[in-house]
Design a protein around this nucleic acid. Structure first.
Lengths: 144, 144, 144, 144
DNA sequence: TTTT
DNA sequence: TTTT
């Protein structure tokens, strides 16, 4: 009796962080920017950027791991989920994420414009697939 | 070149808070619940409820003021917007809201189930329209 | 690299026609009305109704068979599909349908307003489930 | 009390046909392809293409006229509308169209791949804007 | 009739 | 922190 659906088209802000949990479960996280342009009261053109915390699970996370890079444009379909956690001062805090159900790559293959990609050698894609050091990231304790 | 679209169907958790700002601008805020049922690993049926911070501006806010009550089921279309603010400890905090562009009432007229409504006298709708004390609420300093 | 998504909220125009094909595949079809109101140039208020040919397959078709009746309000998510066929004059003709992927019932249980339902005896739901005569309908040759 | 919403991402099949009606009203029409790939029962990979009749009015039609070309990838948001008309044999026939409310160009500027574009001289975009012969097209009598 |  |  209810619907919680998000549709985003935007640009990947950072290469995804991918974690391989036990039981062969993979999760990928990355920021996605959407932006809106409008004319302010003073006539100035303004671009407002919105950052979304994207979370992708299981099979789709493996697709992210292999093919999604900083700068890519993506179509995402998912659900809003707000998680709560306690910060160091004992305050309840909230983080809103987008849990992805469906994804389409809108950047044509070989046209990624992310810094890492363009500076990478010709075998960069394979390199990015193995991306060895995310699992040892010391950000593991952060809630997002 | 980007899209930020949310579609929700859910139930209003509290009667909307409506403020009349200067220049005849109205803003309405209320929580909306969506829920998902799934079967947990142990076979138990679980219902997870997600609460969304809904924000409605201008003409649509006046519709909310007149017709939307606790318990009503709504279809909403809007955009995700995360605002940042500084809490009392000087930490940056974030609140994610849904800014509504389009709304449809799914509760048939006269069938609202909210507690306030059902206990209200027959002129309750007019009463709720004038709703006198929100603007003097001491919650004005809170970011939502 | 492409998206074909439809979101409808509307009312069921006729009780669904349900067919049980071989291999335990079920398909349900029914018309759904959406309507838009607008003010014409002459100041008159006009309501335009749009009829959609809804098609539901497999497990979801069984849900339709059991729970969906004329008059019910539904949320549907699906894809547009246009089928072509040859009419009796040998002309190519086209029928556009909505293939449903996801459905939510928006009419509260026991509040259906369809004529058949309200006039039906207390066991009408079971009756509608077995709905014996659709498969022998002479409309079988029509493309919808 | 109803919703009729379509979201498409696909490729433009032909350069848009643009007509300037009286009262400065512009309408643009073009076919858009979406495609789905799946594995058939025999293990073969199949791509099914769906063609949508896109209709864009007024200001957005002028954007189409200037910027949209065969081959371009677009995000479109709109409504389903089925029109009826009488064919030469006096039969009622139906055409389903997508009336566009919102559009985003997904092909980066200068990267169109449509045949007409790549073979056009460097001033082809201005040329396509004036596109002189559509209004005298003898297809005017056709319903789409 | 488009794209991958 | 992305893109145009």
């Amino acid at each position: 009796m209810s619907v919680n659906k998000v549709i985003l088209i935007g640009n990947v802000g950072q290469d995804p962080e991918v974690k391989h949990l036990d039981k062969d479960v993979t999760v990928a996280r990355f920021p996605l920017a959407t932006s809106e342009s409008y004319t302010a009261k003073n006539g100035e053109k303004v671009t407002a950027t919105e950052w979304h915390n994207i979370v992708v699970w299981r099979g789709l996370a493996k697709v992210v791991e292999q093919y999604v890079h900083k700068g890519d444009k993506l179509y995402l379909e998912g659900r809003i989920r707000t998680r709560s956690w306690d910060d160091k001062d004992g305050n309840k805090r909230y983080t809103t994420e987008i849990n992805v159900d469906n994804m389409e790559m809108l950047t044509p293959k070989g046209q990624s414009t992310g810094a890492q990609q363009t500076s990478a050698p010709s075998n960069q894609q394979a390199a990015s697939v193995s991306e060895p050091d995310f699992s040892s990231s010391d950000e593991d304790d952060l809630p997002f």
